[in-house]
Design a protein around this nucleic acid. Structure first.
Lengths: 195, 195
DNA sequence: CGTCTATTTGAATGTACTCAAAAGCGGTGG
DNA sequence: CCACCGCTTTTGAGTACATTCAAATAGACG
């Protein structure tokens, strides 16, 4: 198994000595799942934190009109978890599902807590992760308050480079918070504008 | 000065012994400002974390149409800071302004760091704060993706009990992400519905 | 090849906005 | 104490953005 990506990811936040890195790696469980696999179902407890090595996962929920809404995508080099469910071991509001065949590492709550207690800098990593997550989420909230669908799409392209070519338009529209029909209209409009 | 509220707030997350509590209190700076005071200007560095003891602050930005958008209100018992600006000591994207005459405690970055280093459980407090903030923000993001203005208003009423009577409709609409004109129309509609 | 889903297209509708104007309300100065 | 000023709120007409529903077309997969 290739741990370079995940070690490099963590190392961007904290310094891991050889011993800590070995402990960290030993607690990870590599997995490979085919597309459409449900990793965490709505109402289930999110028992693992996940780091995507290759492929793509989505975090979603079904809104009151019965449509799927995408909270976030997790592609290569992204961490993903239902924080509320994972930390408090309570039923998740979201579900996490594979969009593509996906290779990832999972870290159980037990091992997460162990790292938290045994590697002081892992606390820092964790803390920074949620601080940055908070900042990023606030940024996305602003977009949804202020921007049109077209502007939000531009932002999607920047946030997830090249993902647009890998997933369906239906999924993109579920992320943008618009209907697939309207997204199709926008695409046509953009095509004529740039010709 | 009355430290009961802030001590009780922190104590909901962690246990503070007498010594830690005294240190904590000694690092706080009480302030009182009249309404409309700009606490942190857009582009300024957010040098303090704030805890509102009485009154109300708002965190806002001006969108590309020139309208004020409200990210959050901070009333009694709420903490408020521009996290990105405060942690990284960089210019803030938001501004923080008093909606009412407000009494609050401010905690400088230097003292924040000192607490972080000297009181281990303060790390826990801080960490939990951003985890909970992340969870709450995700919840608000969902609302903006899925809910109508009317549903978002219901949620505002729950999140900020009684605040509705204290602030202008213009401010509420800036929080909901709708125009004051449209908010006025909705109010009239609700009034006829409940008669 | 057939089936199932995704995408496109179109018409009618709903939600929310812009602009303009009038009415209400609060604070300030004379 | 009142008159005036500025800001908030209401109202209305016209418009833009986005949705729903239905149907046709195109792609993907077994």
């Amino acid at each position: 198994m290739d741990f370079d990506l995940i070690i490099s990811n963590v190392s961007r936040h904290i310094d891991l000595n050889k011993q800590d890195a070995d402990l960290f790696i030993s607690l990870l469980e590599p997995r490979h799942i085919p597309k459409k696999t449900m990793l965490v179902g709505t109402g289930a407890v999110c028992r693992y934190d996940h780091f995507v090595h290759k492929g793509c996962l989505k975090v979603c929920y079904i809104n009151n009109k019965g449509n799927e809404c995408v909270i976030k995508f997790a592609v290569e080099d992204w961490w993903v978890v239902d924080l509320d469910s994972f930390l408090n071991q309570k039923p998740s509001f979201y579900y996490i599902q594979a969009v593509e065949d996906t290779t990832f590492f999972q870290l159980s709550k037990r091992n997460y807590d162990r790292l938290y207690n045994e590697i002081p800098s892992f606390q820092k990593f964790s803390s920074e992760r949620w601080q940055n997550g908070f900042i990023a989420l606030q940024h996305r909230l602003i977009q949804n308050l202020s921007l049109t669908a077209e502007e939000r799409y531009r932002d999607f392209l920047i946030k997830y480079p090249n993902l647009e070519q890998r997933i369906s338009q239906k999924l993109i529209s579920a992320y943008l918070g618009i209907t697939p029909e309207f997204f199709s209209i926008l695409r046509k409009k953009w095509a004529t504008e740039n010709s």
